[in-house]
Design a binder for these strands. Structure first.
Lengths: 115, 115
DNA sequence: CGGTATCCAAAGAGATACTG
DNA sequence: CAGTATCTCTTTGGATACCG
């Protein structure tokens, strides 16, 4: 472990990933590629338009995703992971893997309580 | 990328790591080993007693850290990373590494704006 | 020393309605 | 279609005081 707490940049990564919907948005774009606003919304049941817009704006601001507007009627806006954004994939993968283990861990703990 | 967004467990890992102070607490315990409440507090200027207690309780509940109370006066309580908690280290390391890159990325972006 | 309890401000998040 | 705007509720986080 060579991380100096004083110089810790973990917060920076957390700042990008945190937000109830950001990981799922990123995972969606990584998996499905370029997607329209409405496609993203459909794939995230429960999210409101306001929240989706907000999260997308924040990710765009950090250069994690690209936003392309087609000046036409009806409007068409496409979102995709930027090259830079792809560098987050290892983190998402590591978190997913750990999350799987954690699910098992919690199950074991529950079973112990029952007995 | 084999992560199915529908089965996504990234949130679980995020749930553990999120909180203004959790990463720095974990980093501290990983680096310094067992520490007393007051030592932890000293190494995190700005944190309040209430917040430190709260974060520690949450981490303890998820079995990420161990809490040992010595029944003596004045009280002594020691915190340490659990075996299970150590499995989070790769994630913290990955986030730290990414955070370092991100710091550079932001600097470049600023320089471009200035010119 | 290592906490609780209480109060309060700020940020996050949801519902709903409206618009170019 | 892809958003704003507004209002409200909930969650976080900070300040302060007190306790075993």
């Amino acid at each position: 472990m060579k991380i100096e707490p004083e110089l810790c940049k973990v917060e920076d990564a957390l700042g990008i990933l945190v937000g109830k919907w950001k990981p799922i948005i990123l995972l969606n774009l990584l998996k499905e590629g370029t997607q329209r606003f409405s496609e993203l919304k459909r794939s995230m049941p429960g999210i409101t338009q306001k929240m989706l817009t907000k999260q997308l704006r924040e990710l765009e601001k950090e250069d994690i995703i690209d936003r392309v507007v087609y000046p036409q009627v009806p409007p068409k806006v496409e979102y995709s992971i930027s090259e830079y954004g792809k560098s987050l994939e290892p983190i998402l993968a590591a978190m997913h893997e750990w999350g799987m283990k954690h699910t098992l861990h919690k199950r074991k703990k529950m079973e112990q309580k029952i007995q």
